[in-house]
Structure formats: C-alpha cells, structure tokens
C-alpha cells in the first residue's frame, strides 16, 4: 500500500497545479491549450508503473494447476521473448491456428502453460476499485517491454490479412438504436465529443497516435486499461451489445487499428484523463 500512495499523491498534486494552469490558459484562449497542459502534467508520474511491476511478478511466479510461470510463453517472437513482442501483435499463431492479440495470447499461455481454465481467466478481465485484474497487470508489463520500439504488425499470413479486412468492415459497420459505427466518431480529423479529441483512425497519423498510447492508466477510473477494454467501452457507448473478451471480432478490429499504426514508436502504457 505504501508503494501506491506516493504516485497517487503526486497525481493529486499535479491536478491542483493543473487547475491553476487552466485558469491562466483560458485567458488567452481555448480549452485545447489547457487540456494539452493537463496531459503533459499527467505524464509525469504514471501509476501504470505499479501495474508493470505487479505484472512482472505475475509473469515470473509459478502459478496455476501446472505450477508454472509464464516465462516460456510465446508471444510471437519465440518462448519467453517479450522485448518488442507487442509491436508485432496481433499476429498469426500456428499452434492455435488463429490471429491473436496480446490479451488473447496471454489467455492462451495461462491455459496451456499454467493449466488455468479459460472461462475462469476471461470471466472478469477488467479491474475495479474492489477487484484487481491479473490480465491488466500482465498486459502493462508486456507492453512496457516495447516502449520506444517501432510498430511492425505483420500482414504476411493470409489470416492476418483477412483479420485486417474484417476489422475494417467492423469499423464501418453501422447498427443499433443510434445508427453508430466506429467510423461515426473516428473517420474525420479534428473532431471532438464534448471536449474530448477524437483520433481519425482511418488515417495513419490518428491511428498511430491512438494505438501507441494504449494501454493507458485512466486517471478518471484509477485503473490501467487495456486495448480490449478500450474497444469494449467504445462499443458500450456505440450502443452495441457486448463484445466477448479477446474474441475474433475484437482481434480483427485491433488488427485493423494496429496495422494502420505501423511505423510509429510505441509509447505505452500511457496516462489519460
């Protein structure tokens, strides 16, 4: 608990400073400048580090019915190789004969290597104030090992190419009581919902910025949120039914976004409002 209090106290402090900054920035003009300033201040002291540390411990600890660690987990670059692995996901895995994103692959390893039950592992993937998610911590640890490296998501295997194409269809798919698609909010430059900037995910620049800053610690929720969470909460607000965790549909959509972000330097886990 002592390890938690310091960064949180730091954030409270930066928020207070930010409030002062906001009023100053508003004098000369827009909210945009103040929001940018708020983001910069947040970036200094990211509680995501705590998740990374817990994830590293989980990765290296022998757990589950098979009493094994995840150190032999193959994230695509070979067993145990995690440096840069996230920059090449989602990708095709011959052993499961499907395209997997990081979260799906972590579940695969927890089932195959540690003997956990798939249903159990995926039942409650997202943490809350009263519940810690192992998957969120593991994700934080693995992605931190790709920080500063260039996104290079493969499109060699036919199933990887198909995942991209299906993901694009899902992105443009309009349905539900609000007639929304992902594209409704994310296919034009410079748009906002309320004061929240919306990345244009159909263009390289927008996709690169968005994809390389997820997963992220969400200050408003006090949790580290993964890419699967990001899509899940977007679909909620899109008024869609619930996407199943680490399902093929979510992996296809992630592939579409990740490939569009290729070439950019990975910068997660980031920190967001």
């Amino acid at each position: 608990m002592a390890t938690v209090s310091r960064p949180l106290a730091y954030i409270c402090c930066t928020l207070a400073l930010c409030a002062a900054g906001l009023s100053a920035a508003q004098d000369k003009d827009p909210t945009a400048a103040a929001i940018e300033q708020y983001r910069q201040m947040l970036a200094d002291g990211n509680p995501a580090e705590l998740y990374e540390l817990r994830g590293e411990e989980l990765w290296k600890t022998k757990r589950g019915p098979k009493n094994a660690s995840l150190e032999q987990c193959d994230l695509g670059l070979g067993p145990g190789k995690i440096k840069g692995a996230y920059t090449q996901l989602p990708r095709y895995f011959p052993d499961t004969d499907r395209v997997e994103d990081l979260e799906s692959r972590l579940v695969t390893c927890m089932v195959q290597l540690q003997g956990f039950d798939r249903e159990e592992v995926t039942k409650k993937p997202f943490g809350s104030a009263s519940y810690q998610s192992d998957l969120e911590a593991l994700v934080a640890y693995v992605v931190s090992q790709s920080r500063g490296m260039k996104m290079a998501v493969p499109q060699e295997h036919p199933k990887e190419r198909e995942a991209y194409q299906l993901g694009r269809e899902i992105f443009f798919y309009r349905a539900g009581p609000y007639d929304f698609a992902c594209a409704t909010c994310h296919s034009e430059d410079g748009k906002r919902i309320r004061l929240q900037d919306l990345p244009n995910l159909t263009q390289k620049k927008g996709a690169q910025f968005a994809y390389t800053t997820w997963p992220a610690y969400r200050v408003s929720q006090g949790e580290l949120r993964t890419m699967q969470w990001r899509l899940w909460d977007c679909f909620r607000q899109q008024r869609f039914p619930e996407p199943k965790y680490a399902s093929d549909a979510t992996i296809a959509l992630t592939t579409f976004l990740a490939v569009n972000a290729n070439g950019a330097e990975y910068a997660g886990p980031a920190i967001k409002r």
Partner: peptide, 20 residues
Amino acid sequence: ATALMEKDFQSRGIAKVERL
C-alpha cells in the same frame, strides 16, 4: 464480418444482440 460479429457479441442488460 457480420457473421463474425454475430458470433462474438452477446446480449448484456438492455443491449441485446438483435441490435447488430
């Protein structure tokens, strides 16, 4: 893609799969 979404989305609360 439509078939894939029908497989991978589920009803939750008032948001039923029929919305797809």
